Simulated scan of single mutants.
Amino acid sequence: MAETEDHRSEPARPPAGFGGGEWPAETLVATVRGVLPSLTPAARTVARLILDDPAMVARSTITELSSASGTSEATIVRTARALGFAGYPQLRLALAAASAGRTPDRLVPGDVGPDDPLADVILKVSRAESEAIKDTVAQLTAERLGPVVDSIAAARRVDVYGVGASGLVAADMSQKLLRIGVAGNAFTDAHLALTSAVLLRPGDVAVGVSTSGETPDVLEPLRTARDAGATTVAITNNPRSSMAALAEHLLISAGRETAFRPGALASRISQLLVVDCVFVGVAQRTFDRSQQALQATRKAIDAFVTETRPPSRR
């Protein structure tokens, strides 16, 4: 069946660093997975082949890939460019580098099947989460993290926005920052988030957490915070997303979602890793203040636990 071409224009902003050396070869497949939702339907067909068998795509000529994907050669070229490469030859080279020395299991983690024994479930889930962490680490450079840490360390207030599984990450970030004396809140309700965002001012920081980068409940508060003059940060899997384009600073997480791992697990684990790195960086920048806050909060909690613990029986 002939493909139906989609001639919608690609987003003006390509994934930063694709084809320019910023993205390490070992994270290429993970990054393609992150941008998949923002591609046109025809381009997604080609991108899914990259995800399913990157080594095969690296070996294929454009004519062979056109036949295998059922798409035109023009679509393949457009897909390569949408991913940030000059053309298909450059994409093939990057995929070859990503495939070199890596096992097929590493490139294509096995999804959990409905009949998998629990022993296999343990191995597949742990492998997916381990790979999400490795892929996130490879993309989380000091150059990207540093400005975020500096902004939060100097902030009067930090808003963190997220819903669903990303809302749990937002709450974790806010709680961690609170322990070291950084004032702020996590918002999982769009109305409350907007109420807070519009009252931010220059010097404040707003952080949006969204795997897709297209969640309206996160996008609108982040846009409002930006318009109010706050520094904006996006934590997302998708560097081509609306949220990535909106934010001043972009931190990429990695981790794919499957039928048995929707929204959570690997994606959430990678987001939590990013949050932990931000937290430790801020604690370093504000060491004296952070240590005093940690000691004070720990003392208050320990005293509460001691006072409320029922007396032990002898």
Rank of each mutant, 00 (worst) to 15 (best):
A2P: 15
E3D: 12
E5N: 06
A25R: 00
L28P: 01
A30N: 07
V32P: 01
V32C: 01
P37C: 02
T40M: 00
A43G: 08
R44M: 05
V46Y: 00
A47K: 04
R48S: 12
R48G: 03
I50Q: 00
D52T: 08
P54N: 06
M56A: 15
I62Q: 13
E64R: 09
A68N: 03
A74R: 15
A74W: 09
A74K: 15
A74I: 14
I76P: 02
I76N: 02
R81M: 14
L91P: 01
L93K: 11
A94N: 11
L95F: 05
A96W: 02
A100L: 12
R102E: 03
T103I: 11
P104Q: 08
L107N: 13
D111L: 08
V112E: 09
V112C: 12
D116V: 09
V121P: 05
I122P: 00
V125D: 07
R127T: 10
T136Q: 05
V137I: 10
V137S: 08
T141V: 02
L145W: 05
L145I: 00
G146N: 14
G146S: 15
S151K: 12
V160L: 05
Y161I: 15
G162V: 11
L168H: 14
A170E: 13
S174V: 02
S174W: 00
Q175V: 04
L178T: 10
I180M: 13
F187V: 05
A197E: 01
L200Y: 06
R201Q: 13
R201C: 06
G203M: 10
G203Q: 10
D204C: 03
G213N: 03
T215I: 05
P216Q: 08
P216A: 15
P216N: 07
L222R: 00
R226L: 06
D227N: 12
A228Y: 06
A230E: 05
T231F: 03
T232Q: 02
A234P: 03
T236Q: 07
N238Q: 07
S241D: 09
S242F: 05
A244R: 06
G255F: 10
A259Q: 07
P262D: 12
P262W: 09
A264P: 00
A264K: 03
Q271I: 10
V278K: 02
G281L: 06
R285M: 02
T286E: 11
T286A: 11
Q291A: 14
Q292F: 07
R298L: 10
K299T: 15
K299P: 01
I301G: 05
I301D: 14
V305Y: 12
S312H: 09
S312D: 13
